[in-house]
């Protein structure tokens, strides 16, 4: 009992999130009942959350360093297009080549493309000091451009039937894509908590200048981080392609807003240094359950856009209130990064 209390105290924000999650789940159970708590709905939710969860993980890693990655969706789409190119029969003759070989090549190509996208981001941010927000804005347009040139703006159809299985196959009625996402989240949590580079990512977000003065090769760290982000986008791309059986420019544009929403909801500080994978998991769960509930309730796309936007603003507002109270009790220990606080104290308004 005592350990539980201790845990709750140490993970205050996560406990609140978990509580809200339980509340939402109970409420949906009351309102929707079996339409929500059915195996098929659970499975479809697990499948849907997979690609989005990976993209959100990518975004959260960027935010831990105080950066942001606006190119996650476009890198994923580009990686998907590169992978799908192998599955359309343009490169291999699908009649004569072994499907396993074709799929293997597609997987490697997509992951490699994602990795290269991330690497380019990392190099631009670390080696030329372009602010992450602008660097990834530029690369997102550039990646979309490459994707448009490859496809001519059309949708690439996937002709290797076996590849669709990735999005459908289940292990003990759990979709494989969901398992992939869970593994990625667990690996990220371990890497952030237990490895040297992981701890340094937090330090970088907390105070990148101090980290530089401790002699850490901060540029290599950033390049590595964005490369990993790109790789995660590559994995998400494979899931996207297998689920939609095609790849096209413009897919999943709404994911960018949702990814930022879920990461902010998860308690990550956009100025860097704060955030836990556990929070991300809880926030993802909440967003997905709500999203499915809205679908069952037949809300239109704009209703969803409105709700996500309002939620993002509300969460930021609540965070602000909570942080303000914390500061009142704990002296001036600020929680939201030096840059932002300065204005709060100095503003005459």
């Amino acid at each position: 009992m005592e350990t539980i209390l201790k845990w709750l105290k140490a993970n205050g924000y996560e406990s609140v999130l978990a509580g809200v999650n339980i509340l939402v789940l109970l409420l949906l159970g009351l309102v929707l009942g079996d339409a929500f708590y059915s195996i098929s709905n659970m499975q479809s939710m697990a499948t849907q959350v997979a690609e989005f969860g990976l993209l959100a993980l990518a975004m959260s890693l960027a935010m831990l360093t105080g950066g942001i990655d606006l190119s996650i969706v476009s890198s994923a789409v580009l990686a998907g297009i590169v992978g799908a190119e192998f599955l359309t029969g343009n490169i291999f003759d699908l009649e004569t080549t072994d499907p396993t070989l074709v799929m293997g090549a597609a997987v490697v190509a997509a992951l490699l493309a994602g990795l290269l996208c991330g690497l380019l981001n990392g190099l631009l941010i670390a080696k030329t000091s372009i602010p992450p927000i602008l660097a990834t804005l530029g690369t997102s347009i550039f990646f979309t451009g490459i994707g448009t040139v490859i496809t001519g703006g059309a949708s690439l159809p996937v002709r290797v039937k076996a590849f669709f299985q990735l999005g459908v196959v289940t292990v003990a009625s759990v979709p494989v894509v969901f398992i992939i996402m869970v593994i990625a989240l667990i690996l990220a949590a371990i890497a952030l908590k237990r490895t040297r580079s992981g701890r340094r990512i937090y330090l970088y977000g907390e105070n990148s200048i101090a980290l530089r003065f401790t002699g850490v090769r901060h540029e290599r760290l950033i390049i590595l981080l964005y490369a990993v982000i790109g790789l995660i986008c590559g994995i998400a791309a494979l899931i996207m392609v297998s689920r939609t059986a095609s790849a096209r420019v413009g897919y999943g544009e709404a994911y960018l807003l949702q990814a930022i929403l879920v990461v902010v909801l998860a308690g990550f500080n956009p100025f860097g240094g704060r955030g836990k994978i556990l929070g991300l998991v809880l926030a993802l769960m909440m967003l997905q359950t709500l999203s499915s509930a809205f679908t069952i309730m037949r809300y239109g796309p704009y209703m969803k856009v409105f709700i996500w936007g309002a939620m993002l603003l509300a969460v930021m507002f609540l965070n602000r209130l909570m942080n303000r109270n914390k500061r009142a009790t704990k002296g001036d220990e600020s929680n939201d990064g030096g840059k932002a606080m300065v204005a709060a104290e100095g503003s005459p308004a």
Binding site: I133, L257, I260, V264, F271, L312, R320
Partner: peptide, 11 residues
């Protein structure tokens, strides 16, 4: 809100 303007205006 004192948060990055990008995130606020996205909302």
């Amino acid at each position: 809100l004192k948060l990055p303007t990008l995130i606020v205006t996205l909302g």
